[in-house]
Design a protein around this nucleic acid. Structure first.
Lengths: 337, 337
DNA sequence: CTGTTAGCGCTTTCAA
DNA sequence: TTGAAAGCGCTAACAG
């Protein structure tokens, strides 16, 4: 699309200097009321729209942030990510920021790759979604101030990156307490991808809580896999093969839980009578399956919003030291447990 | 993030002219091998990364496309959108395009708002997702060539906009034929939002096919609502209140189908014995609910990819006349019907 | 193959 | 309050 009307055109048409026109449009308070009106009228008449690229170059800013997610491409996308994205777009719009979205195949994302988007002025700041690693040495802030990069759904404050996360531990504590309160004494734990941040922390939370309740002997970890339905389904097979099956199953995430339920029910077990099942995430459709899934609901959209707000605070220089924001999930007790 | 290394720095360091350095980096074939190596080495040493904003301004291009979706913010997001987005990001990356994402509250999106992103050089082209309207007069291509805007999931070729869509009619024909083949003679149609493109076309497809089969008298339209779970659940109430309930329910989309199933099963009906249920979309989790949903699976990611390819063709001038690409869904027969 | 020279369109001192 | 002028960093003719 050819762009024709420039500030120069407006300057010519109004007989004003180009810099005056620019001022009239960007800080109306710094020109006379008359000038402002004139410029605005002519701009409207000519359909002036400006050139963002030129403004970006001149100002050295882009008013754009990037959402950078690993593995976004080429595999089933997590609905959690979608919800976070929704919050991000929402908040960005209200702050006047544009959002660019980029996926990186493979986890972790090299820090240098992330920094490049900042250095080459593609965007002003970056939101890392569930990214496993950050190398502050590579990013060049061993001691200095952190770059405008925020980690979302993953606590990277140990590497100096501000983060906003869900209080996953509390979510799993609530799940364990609920199941224990129901009288369960043996618990399968359907694991996510081995070694991955969320898997490690969630398992630890379950184990620690069971230990605190003196129920640690009842814990039976079961291999799951990627955070998807198929892995949960496969885990059900392992569960069914157990000599002594636990009466409850705590799943690392909702997708695993749904796949798992499908698997055990297909084998003739009843949920929750033969095995109670609980998940974590709070995907909206978990309320509309049969049986409805008991799960800890994360405030995913709010996490996205908070991330954008924090990033904006960084960009505007309102904050400079890394900080951690963590939002509480809420247990939704439904039919499955 | 301050950027320090510029082409001027490289020019100084190498003793070459800045334009030679630029050339060495952007069209290595047009400089001597020696020069190229020298420049590359110095660039690497200094950690040169370029300035995208400057390049954009100079080239008059952004190498960025925008995904513009209505109602993306503030309501439950459609998993279909997510899948399309996945395809978009995938294809864009392989074409070297960045993708910006933007939501517009309210449908339809005014054509002028869309055009502004092009005129002000925010992006080079736009992918409209399921947008209801386009006004070629406002866009300024009553007769001339169309702007680099592609409509996805919504046929807007009548307004001169290239579009890529699913063959929804064929999907619903397959659903109807399948149910009829099962012996059903009475069909509830659970509607989407009244008047909306997808709702109108899908209902028409169902009605026409039933008519072709001489089964039109068995069609009972039931009010649904927005394309979400809750609306389907509510529709189940209306279905249950019917004097004579059809033996099959064709739902305008999967979300409605799942909510509907939940509703009728909660009332004690069995699916598919008391009522067979079929959806449309092919959301991945429909295979993992109980009973697994029979549905027409759209190639959503592929639709996103095709949209990006088409947009790229426009941008590169490979095509100029509007065209329509439509991809066939495939019926997934599962337990619910 | 390389250097010179204009810009791209806007912002922003610095004077007037 | 307005104008003049100098860039932002890169690209792209056009010469040489």
């Amino acid at each position: 699309m050819a762009q024709r009307i420039t500030l120069a055109d407006l300057a010519e048409k109004t007989g004003l200097n180009i810099s005056t026109v620019s001022r009239a449009l960007t800080r109306p308070g710094r020109v006379s009321a008359e000038t402002r009106r004139l410029v605005e009228k002519v701009a409207a008449d000519l359909g002036y729209m400006g050139n963002i690229a030129a403004r970006n170059l001149s100002r050295g800013t882009t008013e754009t942030i990037m959402v950078l997610a690993p593995n976004f491409t080429g595999q089933a996308i997590s609905p959690v990510f979608t919800e976070v994205l929704l919050g991000v777009c929402d908040e960005a719009e209200s702050l006047g920021l544009s959002v660019m979205i980029h996926s990186h195949t493979g986890q972790p994302i090299p820090t240098a790759d992330v920094m490049r988007f900042l250095h080459n002025h593609t965007v002003d700041g970056i939101l890392l979604i569930a990214t496993e690693k950050w190398d502050r040495a590579v990013a060049g802030h061993k001691d200095g101030p952190a770059p405008p990069v925020i980690s979302v759904m993953h606590d990277l404050t140990s590497e100096g990156l501000s983060s906003v996360v869900a209080q996953e531990e509390e979510g799993f504590v609530a799940v364990v307490d609920h199941l224990a309160g129901l009288g369960h004494r043996s618990f399968a734990y359907i694991a996510g991808l081995p070694g991955v941040y969320h898997e490690v922390r969630r398992y630890a939370a379950v184990r620690d809580r069971l230990t605190a309740l003196g129920l640690q002997d009842g814990l039976v970890p079961i291999e799951g896999g990627p955070f998807d339905l198929a892995s949960g389904f496969a885990a059900a097979g392992r569960f069914l093969a157990l000599d002594q099956r636990p009466t409850a199953a705590i799943c690392c995430c909702d997708a695993l839980a749904i796949g798992f339920m499908q698997g055990v029910r297909q084998a003739g077990l009843s949920v929750p009578d033969d095995v109670a099942v609980a998940g974590y995430d709070g995907l909206d459709y978990t309320a509309f399956i049969t049986p409805a899934l008991t799960t800890a609901v994360q405030p995913s959209a709010e996490i996205g919003r908070a991330g954008v707000r924090m990033l904006d605070d960084f960009l505007k220089g309102r904050i400079t030291a890394p900080r951690l924001v963590s939002l509480a999930p809420r247990l939704a007790v439904r039919e499955s447990a």
